[in-house]
Write a protein that binds this DNA or RNA. Structure first.
Ligand SMILES: [Mn+2]
Ligand SMILES: [Mn+2]
Ligand SMILES: [Mn+2]
Ligand SMILES: [Mn+2]
Lengths: 223, 223
DNA sequence: AATACAATTTAGATTAGACTAAATTTATCG
DNA sequence: CGATAAATTTAGTCTAATCTAAATTGTATT
């Protein structure tokens, strides 16, 4: 019963999950970039995942892959580990939100289910990680995300920052400096239809943010 | 400079360290048993470790191996990780001393030096792990152990338990039930020269222990 | 010293996961 | 529609770490 997928396979499944969240297939090239593995190697691996018993992905030549039910469970297991670890590293070892990702990336594959349970319990079963991302439940269901991309807001609208997705460490430090952390209340001050820049006020700080940033910040719309 | 030895190599070095602590060479067969790897594979690997640049072990055909300075540093790095992790898991996640070993066995290879520093600092730089074993210092020196095997004590002598070495989970639980934990004060009540059994009193509990156990418990002799 | 058994090494094969180079398929655009 | 370019797949190679079977070496015992 102990499936014990290899670390490599766990990482493939995790990235396939992320690439298919919007309903699309995960392409060979997209996976290649995410995983830092050459496209030929990706093809090789996804063929293996599709041939596995039980199959972990659905694969059609030249059409990319999607996860099977089995594959999705395995992916969510890794993602749950990752996000609980990030929360735990911040809470117990004083890591900052821009430092935790790398560490969690390696630990996620080697902790036991017991470790997972103990972390979750010690933190009171948190719903989100330090970036505000939802943590899959213990029975491996991803809760529904109700937030809106900041890029969809317009002047005068108010919102609370919920989550910052796929940001590298540098951007995370930048946002922290601007007071744009999960939980922060913000008001849209201005919008430029030319470059889609948003001017945003958080506390006393005002920042002009490009689409590159506003597309990664997700908020709770307050009116 | 980031050497990044494989997990497999890290485990070989750790076990070679343990097998050579007494000054002997680590034999192919002994390593094979410890690592759960066939002797032929061990020969293969130690030849590779000896040929590495810089060499990690000294190898003479049919004579087993010892660690080079480089090899010893790498081994102590792994052992420091392992023992800090055990202490950390007990302190922060409520693991008991018979549960931590397995988890640390996997985590020891993937935590960063930053993680190591943070754990050590958070615990106030502990000297020993939950089994009482010494933790190599941050600059990778193994402190001197001054304890005596319990098997060397005789009736009327008093001692404090310092450490329990190489015990499996079952034995650890057994010892805990007998009040024989690191720190416990004990008195020798009786000794049988026939089977080398020692009768030991800890608090109100009296136990008769065979050489199999008394050889694994190390104590501070109190007089 | 000869023999027998145990320990070790050699030789050759296997598995997982990656890579490069070349072939093929799909998509795009004039 | 047909030519290119981009994406993907195939084919063949490589490395790390293991295994089994067979050969060799060392040691203990007569
Ligand atoms: Mn992360
Ligand atoms: Mn990972
Ligand atoms: Mn241990
Ligand atoms: Mn290990």
């Amino acid at each position: 019963m102990e499936s014990s997928l290899t670390i490599s396979i766990q990482d493939y499944l995790k990235h396939i999950y992320e690439l298919t969240e919007g309903g699309e297939n995960a392409s060979t090239n997209a996976l290649s970039e995410r995983l830092n593995v050459k496209p030929a190697s990706v093809t090789n691996m996804v063929q293996k995942l599709a041939a596995a018993q039980p199959a972990l992905v659905e694969y059609q030549k030249h059409q990319g892959v999607t996860l099977t039910k089995e594959g999705r469970k395995a992916a969510l297991e890794v993602i749950r580990h990752h996000r609980l670890l990030e929360a735990w590293l911040v809470q117990t070892l004083g890591y900052s939100w821009d430092e935790v990702h790398e560490e969690a990336e390696r630990l996620e594959h080697v902790i036991s289910e017991d470790f997972e349970r103990r972390m979750a319990a010690a933190m009171g079963h948190p719903l989100r990680d330090p970036h505000g991302e939802l943590i899959p439940t213990a029975d491996l269901v991803m809760p529904l995300e109700d937030s809106t991309p900041l890029s969809a807001l317009r002047p005068k609208q108010k919102a609370k920052i919920q989550c910052v997705k796929n940001a590298d460490a540098e951007l995370l430090r930048h946002l922290e400096g601007l007071g744009l952390l999960p939980g922060a209340q913000i008001v849209i001050v201005d919008y430029s239809s030319f470059d889609h820049n948003l001017t945003v006020k958080s506390g006393t700080k005002v920042s002009v943010l490009g689409l590159n940033i506003t597309g990664k910040i997700f908020v709770d719309y307050l009116g």
